[in-house]
Design a protein around this nucleic acid. Structure first.
Length: 284
DNA sequence: CACGAGACCTGTTCGC
DNA sequence: TGCGAACAGGTCTCGT
């Protein structure tokens, strides 16, 4: 599920209060609350440290703040950082302590004030880290796409140095942080660039357009509380505004040409063949 | 350096 | 109705 806009939505709800129960009913913020107890229901969810050390260390710490870096949810505790990556099917639910556990709960924190915060994850790909220093995990991430310090010029220089195709490059979290399959497809459509375009072939003007498109789709996603598809991550609305993602065969909203689906880097990829032509020189 | 395949997992949907 | 295949928002590792 979660790409940058979905994780940002969750971070804001944890910080400011908001819809995080399975039904997305408003909840009080978890910031400022003490962690009374941790329950680990699927051990491999914890990347670091050991389950015993985790339970011992996290107990009694207070959630001082919540932020996001790339697709990581970052809980700033009294002494440590609790980093959570939702991967494909993860979500965070806040409920009253007396409410029943969710079917896919993997890690549950009991909080002061009669609340619990659950890391739920049907596919068990999600991971959590408890670290004094988050740098080893977050340090490999590329720039934040919405950071004004990340200029079109820097982006263009980065593209010019790479021979990779645009789609796998934009999905690479070391190159740029936070984009996944949905938002890459949407951004490439907006910028009218084919996913197989070699990065080094992108002109300065196209790079500017692409960065602008990336920011536009991310901001639209955040504004609509993320995208909800299938049974995972409910509450978002951005899925109703997709231009190409999962619109195979449907008419392009710009030109009417049927949207095509191809596979790039083993991921389903959606393009308008008319709006996003691939130069013959760039091959397939 | 870049790419593809396979792993890690479970659930839903589609075709026969 | 049943059953297997395909597919799903991500990332890591290995082989070429």
């Amino acid at each position: 599920m979660p790409e940058l806009p979905e994780v940002e939505t969750i971070a804001r709800a944890l910080r400011d209060g908001g819809g995080l129960a399975p039904e997305r009913k408003p909840n009080p913020p978890v910031v400022g609350r003490e962690i009374l107890q941790a329950r680990l229901l699927w051990e491999r969810t914890l990347a670091q440290p050991s389950p015993a050390a985790f339970r011992r260390q996290v107990k009694g710490q207070c959630i001082e703040g919540v932020s996001r870096r790339g697709k990581y949810l970052c809980l700033h505790l009294t002494r440590d950082w609790l980093l959570i990556h939702l991967r494909m099917s993860g979500d965070i639910f806040v409920r009253r302590a007396d409410q029943p556990a969710g079917q896919y709960d993997r890690l549950v924190l009991s909080l002061a004030g009669g609340l619990q915060m659950a890391f739920s994850d049907a596919r068990k790909f999600g991971r959590a880290w408890l670290l004094a220093d988050p740098q080893p995990v977050l340090g490999t991430l590329g720039p934040e796409p919405l950071d004004p310090a990340f200029t079109p010029e820097i982006f263009f220089q980065g593209l010019a140095r790479r021979r990779r195709r645009l789609k796998p490059l934009l999905m690479d979290q070391r190159f740029i942080a936070g984009l996944g399959n949905i938002y890459v497809d949407e951004a490439l459509f907006l910028a009218r660039l084919h996913p197989l375009t070699p990065a080094e072939r992108v002109t300065q003007a196209q790079a500017e357009r692409l960065l602008q498109a990336i920011r536009q789709v991310l901001q639209a996603g955040i504004k609509r509380n993320g995208a909800s598809i299938d049974w995972i991550y409910r509450g978002g609305d951005f899925q109703n505004h997709f231009q190409v993602y999962q619109r195979t065969g449907k008419p392009c909203r710009r030109c009417g040409t049927p949207i095509e689906r191809l596979v790039v880097a083993q991921r389903g990829t959606h393009v308008c063949p008319a709006c996003q032509p691939l130069s013959p020189a760039d091959g397939v």
